[in-house]
């Protein structure tokens, strides 16, 4: 199990990286953390002609707070997200999510930009981006583009990134006071990709939700922001009956696949379980735990 031969270029600057991508287009692959790309290459599932290694681009690294925005460089590793005080303060959902990403040795290499560009529908961070209302910052031939997370993910392993684009940063609105989050996933083993997961960011107002963003993952081609279910649950008094209605709405918002772990029906079921657990946890309402018609 050895990768096919390829050429290698270590980008010396962002401009250099973009130049390499402009020249080689889809024959090139960007190497960030490599934790998805290299296994695929070892298995010869992909055989790029050129690897553009962006690992030396210090300007793509780091986490900063700029006013009301948290800016995360694309090369920021999962391990950095887990340890960052900025993340804990400004986007605690991310810290909660990253703990579920693979294992320490993988988190030491894997990057947030790599994860989002890979766009595995079962991975945690894309769904967090939806829940957080993040903006993906992309550089390409035509300069910089800022793409809302909701628009960014277009299919299985597919995004708005073109072959000549580079994902350079992520902007996340700083969590406002009174906001809360919930993250849970059902994975067969610790660190595995989830069968279904939920990343939720909410604003509570008393015993109701003023805002509710439910980012489900492993429920279709892309992560899904469950808007219909959220709309029903926003501003209303949450009763088991309402939860059941929202759950039904949720099920129709999802278009899950069948794979070796679960049928679509099972994924819908587990998504409903997650919704109930999310509400029960955030509102401290144990009665909702099994109230989603599950």
């Amino acid at each position: 199990m050895k990768a096919s031969a390829f050429a290698y270029a270590r980008a010396t600057s962002l401009a250099n990286a973009l130049e390499l991508l402009a020249t080689h287009g889809d024959k090139a692959k960007v190497l960030s953390g490599g934790q998805s790309l290299i296994p695929a290459m070892n298995l010869r599932l992909v055989s790029p002609e050129l690897i553009v290694d962006i690992g030396d681009l210090g300007e793509l690294r780091g986490i900063a707070v700029k006013g009301e925005t948290l800016v995360i460089g694309a090369l920021t590793r999962h391990a950095d997200l887990l340890k960052s005080s900025h993340i804990v303060k400004c986007a605690p959902l991310l810290a909660a999510a990253v703990a579920h990403v693979a294992h320490p040795a993988i988190r030491n290499r894997g990057t947030i930009g790599g994860s989002l560009a890979q766009a595995d529908p079962a991975s945690e961070l894309p769904a967090c981006m939806l829940a957080l209302g993040a903006t993906i910052v992309v550089r390409g031939k035509g300069g910089e583009r800022r793409i809302a997370a909701e628009e960014f993910f277009t299919g299985i392993y597919e995004t708005k990134l073109g072959p000549q684009d580079l994902l350079v940063a992520i902007e996340v609105p700083v969590a406002s006071p009174g906001s809360a989050h919930f993250f849970q996933e059902f994975a067969r083993r610790h660190g595995d990709y989830a069968i279904v997961g939920l990343a939720a960011q909410v604003m509570r107002q008393g015993d109701r939700f003023a805002d509710l963003r439910l980012g489900f993952f492993a429920v279709g081609d892309t992560p899904v922001l469950a808007k219909a279910a959220a709309a029903m649950l926003t501003g209303a008094a949450i009763t088991p009956e309402l939860l059941a209605e929202a759950s039904a709405a949720l099920a129709s918002e999802l278009n899950p696949h069948e794979d070796q772990q679960a049928t679509p029906a099972m994924r819908r079921h587990l998504a409903r379980v997650l919704l109930a657990r999310c509400l029960a946890t955030l509102l401290n309402r144990p009665d909702l735990q099994t109230g989603a018609g599950v």
Partner: peptide
């Protein structure tokens, strides 16, 4: 395994553990 799952190839790079089958 050569695809980053088993952990047998774990080494330290710059003081941090990594899968050496997943680095060039």
């Amino acid at each position: 395994c050569e695809h980053g799952v088993c952990g047998a190839c774990t080494v330290r790079v710059g003081g941090e553990i990594v899968r050496s089958c997943l680095m060039l």
